[in-house]
């Protein structure tokens, strides 16, 4: 199922890229709009223009992959979002983890990077005893684990919510008592949940990309 989504995305983007014109058609302008959104809102706001150019392919790839995988959850027939199985979010989060650690080590050197991330300046000396383990744990574990869990739990919760409401509608319709009267409301709610899921899919793709950009920015920022 995920292979189908990946194939569709690859083929669509390849076709659009190979036919790219100066004056974009409808499909091309949609893709360009999305890329512009990622580039303008996420990358330039957090990384800046110069640093942003280095990481733009990574971030745009992540955004498109998560968006299409999330949207697969509301396509009838596919039904299950690719990101609601733990493998994909974990892979993407680990990819982000490796990217920001490598970027930070390249910029500051290994010891310098550890010092940069775990010892924020302007703190009284004794507090470092508390601060260093927490910050270290955050860099090594909490950041990518929370990226994984956020995406996964959102998609799983959305999927369960849709199943519950559609199942409730069917149960009420087939109940054979006066409860049938309630089924139009739950049916309408189920359709509403579909709309909400589309919103959540876009929002989660946005948040994941944004946090990845913020982590990279934290790792590569200059001493302050």
């Amino acid at each position: 199922m995920r292979l189908i989504v990946i194939a569709v995305v690859l083929i669509v983007t390849c076709v659009i890229a190979s036919r790219a014109k100066l004056v974009p058609g409808r499909a091309q302008s949609i893709v360009e709009l999305l890329i512009e959104f990622v580039h303008g809102t996420i990358i330039q706001n957090t990384l800046g223009i110069r640093e942003g150019r280095r990481f733009a392919p990574f971030l745009i790839t992540i955004f498109f992959l998560i968006l299409s995988m999330n949207l697969a959850g509301v396509v009838p027939g596919l039904n299950l979002a690719g990101t609601s199985v733990i493998g994909l979010p974990l892979l993407l989060a680990l990819w982000t983890f490796v990217t920001y650690v490598v970027a930070g080590v390249k910029k500051h050197g290994f010891a310098g990077y550890l010092k940069h991330e775990t010892m924020p300046p302007g703190v009284p000396k004794p507090i470092y005893l508390l601060l260093i383990p927490i910050e270290f744990l955050q860099v090594v574990l909490i950041r990518w684990a929370s990226l994984t869990i956020r995406l996964l739990a959102n998609m799983v919760a959305g999927h369960i919510m849709m199943v519950v409401f559609i199942g409730l509608t069917q149960g009420l319709l087939l109940s054979g008592t006066w409860l049938i009267l309630g089924s139009p409301f739950t049916g309408a709610l189920a359709i509403g949940i579909f709309g909400f899921e589309i919103f959540v899919a876009a929002l989660q793709a946005f948040i994941f990309t944004m946090l990845a950009a913020v982590y990279i920015q934290m790792a590569t920022s200059d001493e302050h």
Binding site: I42, N45, T46, F206, I207, M210, L211
Partner: peptide, 11 residues
């Protein structure tokens, strides 16, 4: 910018 910060905080 405020919206960006808001979404990070919400996350």
């Amino acid at each position: 910018q405020l919206q960006t910060t808001m979404f990070i905080g919400i996350a």
